[in-house]
Write a protein that binds this DNA or RNA. Structure first.
Lengths: 131, 131
DNA sequence: TATAAGTGTGGAGTGTACTCCATGGTAAAG
DNA sequence: CTTTACCATGGAGTACACTCCACACTTATA
């Protein structure tokens, strides 16, 4: 698909997509159309890659870190062991993130309870999650 | 406590704390010491506020949005209803975030399974979470 | 009382992630 | 063949969140 269709599929602005390509996060093929500056062609797999990038961003990774991770992932694409390792790493980070989120939810629920019960006792504190 | 102790308690650099104060995210009192530029004094409650700020940041909020939320929270500090409303809002956003995280985890686990079973069938795709 | 350490203020500089624009080439529709 | 839409490239500009001074003043220490 062409860049505008890719933009629709991912919800990303065309400029952002080009920015990601410049940063090495996406590597579309070049088609036959476009003459001297051939048009870039995107696969449906790259749509998933793009969504993964957005997710990783929400996890606090910089585009540089995401690129490194994804490059490593691609490099080991033919080694199931390595691929699984990278996936496992991602999963662990997500779970760590989820734990922090749960801690925050516990804190907020605790605070709600504390207020409902007339603010008796000390206000709930939040633990340091030293991300 | 003084700013350097607050820095230790929160793990934030002194410069960042001052930056947050300038942005209106933290509002320490002024003590008697310090002459013309009185020293700022922080309470243990503000340590929790600072941790909450960091958490909100990891959820993708800008400092401006965090400030707005916290200001509203403080504004309704004497109205339990409003306070509970704001807390409820925070809780909902966190839960929404958690749902997106769970979707990503499902995707990753699915991918692990897909690889383990010899990449039979189509590769798992990730849904759009339109955050 | 000298001196080191801590504090406040103002402003400049940095890295990240876009976002916008001008220019020029290519493609599809009528 | 012209008009309209789409594409690529390069570079400038922007918003955000710090981060790093320089300077002046205050406090604690020897």
């Amino acid at each position: 698909m062409l860049i505008s269709e890719f933009a629709k599929a991912t919800g990303l602005p065309v400029d952002t997509i080009r920015f990601y390509i410049a940063k090495g996060l996406l590597k579309p093929d070049r088609g036959l159309k476009g003459g001297s500056n051939p048009f870039q062609l995107f696969t449906p797999e790259e749509v998933t890659v793009a969504r993964m990038i957005r997710l990783q961003q929400t996890l606090g990774y910089t585009l540089g870190e995401i690129r490194a991770l994804n490059d490593e992932y691609r490099a080991g694409a033919h080694s199931p062991e390595r691929t699984l390792e990278v996936l496992q790493l991602q999963i662990e980070r997500l779970q760590h993130r989820k734990a922090a989120l749960d801690a925050a939810l516990t804190f907020l629920h605790g605070k709600v309870e504390w207020i409902r019960s007339g603010r008796t006792g000390p206000a709930p504190q939040m633990e340091d999650d030293q991300r």
